[in-house]
Design a protein around this nucleic acid. Structure first.
Lengths: 118, 118
DNA sequence: GTAACTACTATACTTTTATATACCGGTATC
DNA sequence: GATACCGGTATATAAAAGTATAGTAGTTAC
């Protein structure tokens, strides 16, 4: 019934795939990471810009989640010694690629809604 | 640079897509939902089978998460009045389709690992 | 009759995650 | 000299998620 997908092989090579899924889960884990990534998909942003765009987030959470995302190689933090200092957050190449994951999530979500409406 | 993806249109139609992503997030939210779905991808299972397969899960959590997944239209619960009663859990059509999401998660995770190793 | 299996539920507790509120040093504006 | 913007941090608290442990009602095997 068609080609073998990566997940079909999970029993052959489950360690790798479980790690891969865990990595992906780490990126989207928690209440604020997706909103942050979503906001950065359309270009670099400064701390206060993100704080204003993501309604309801506190600076504490924003700071924490940005650090998490930076450690996981999803965003980069660049400090410019302008006056006053400017701090710029942007997605890494990997972070940009995460859009693919979001795209299937949207696709599945829409299909699922339709299938429930029946 | 190629066709317009669904996420590119998020500003035009953000409400729909945010809902869709939230639906998807509900499916994978928490520590145990992915292991449960993963275990059911290879066919129907009974409660105790799942409990044995998913190492570390307590019956309380398994019961709760199965109810969540059932309510969200991801799994079905069927009771057979055999003796003793047999309860069978299996993925819905939508639940099976969720494999597509897992596939891109694996794909992205593997790529991300590679990109970090450099 | 006692031990074990099935499919759970109940209660209490710990850990994790998120919020609320206030504050810091620096600059620049009025 | 008071106020406001930037990029955060500190402390305390509340809410959510997960764990530990025990128990239920019924059935079957020894």
């Amino acid at each position: 019934m068609g080609r073998i997908s990566q997940l079909d092989q999970i029993k052959l090579c489950s360690g790798q795939f479980v790690l891969a899924i865990n990595d992906t889960m780490n990126v989207i884990h928690g209440k604020w990471k997706l909103p942050i990534i979503g906001s950065l998909l359309y270009g670099k942003k400064r701390f206060k810009e993100l704080e204003r765009e993501i309604s309801g987030i506190t600076p504490r959470m924003l700071s924490k989640e940005l650090k998490d995302l930076e450690m996981n190689g999803i965003v980069t933090r660049t400090v410019y010694d302008s006056i006053p200092v400017t701090v710029e957050y942007r997605l890494t190449r990997s972070g940009e690629c995460f859009k693919k994951v979001l795209d299937v999530m949207v696709e599945w979500g829409l299909q699922h809604r339709k299938s429930i409406m029946v």
